[in-house]
């Protein structure tokens, strides 16, 4: 090696110029350094090893869970899986959109996911409106937990900090409150227009 090549960065010469890391020093400094050094002796190795004990399963194929309502499923599945979650059955307009998305589109289609996201937004609006007919209406102040700004150092957690998220955090209240403000404005304009028409 020429004298000048020793001064070149590692990537440009055959052997690296980076100083060798001393294993004994690392072992002394870091508790447990190197205890999993052997790649063949790590928990996920070997990949795809057949586990004869089936991790405690005492079935070849599990007994089927009763289907208490028509359960939506991916059309990439051969059948309804033997076990499934039973939270929040589809309902209302959001349920119609969700069931259509599952029935019509595979997971490989963007339409499937975009329809599900649309259904999520419709679901939120349906639920907000429904809550106003109950004794427990949605309360954006308590449900967003925003009062913790006062009890958990909202200002000092941000002021003078080089936080990259401070640029877009002002969008969060717009996302939460924006649709409510817009809906309130539309309702106000609608009612005012109706009143004027009735007065004529």
């Amino acid at each position: 090696m020429t004298a000048s090549s020793r001064d070149l960065p590692t990537a440009y010469v055959p052997s690296g110029a980076a100083p060798a890391r001393d294993a004994d020093q690392l072992r002394a400094r870091i508790p447990g350094w190197g205890v999993d050094l052997d790649p063949a002796d790590r928990p996920s190795v070997p990949k795809l090893q057949f586990h004869e004990d089936l991790s405690g399963a005492h079935w070849e194929f599990p007994e089927r869970q009763p289907e208490r309502w028509p359960r939506e499923r991916s059309i990439e599945h051969a059948f309804l899986t033997p076990v499934f979650g039973t939270a929040c059955p589809p309902h209302g307009l959001s349920g119609v959109i969700r069931k259509f998305s599952y029935r019509r589109y595979s997971e490989g289609r963007a339409a499937h996911w975009l329809l599900l996201l649309l259904a999520d937004r419709v679901d939120a609006w349906e639920s907000h409106l429904r809550s106003f007919a109950t004794l427990h209406p949605d309360n954006p102040i308590t449900e967003t937990g925003v009062l913790s700004e006062f009890s958990h150092h909202g200002l000092s957690s941000r002021l003078g900090r080089r936080r990259s998220d401070l640029v877009h955090q002002p969008l969060d209240p717009v996302i939460v409150a924006g649709p409510w403000v817009a809906a309130g404005g539309a309702a106000f304009v609608g009612i005012r227009t109706l009143m004027r028409m009735l007065r004529r």
Binding site: L54, A57, L80, F84, Y102
Partner: peptide, 18 residues
């Protein structure tokens, strides 16, 4: 699951295969 890929179980999620 029989091959240790518990996070990829095919018998528990009807909504998605991925």
């Amino acid at each position: 699951c029989a091959r240790g890929l518990y996070s990829n179980c095919h018998n528990v999620n009807p909504n998605a295969t991925a």
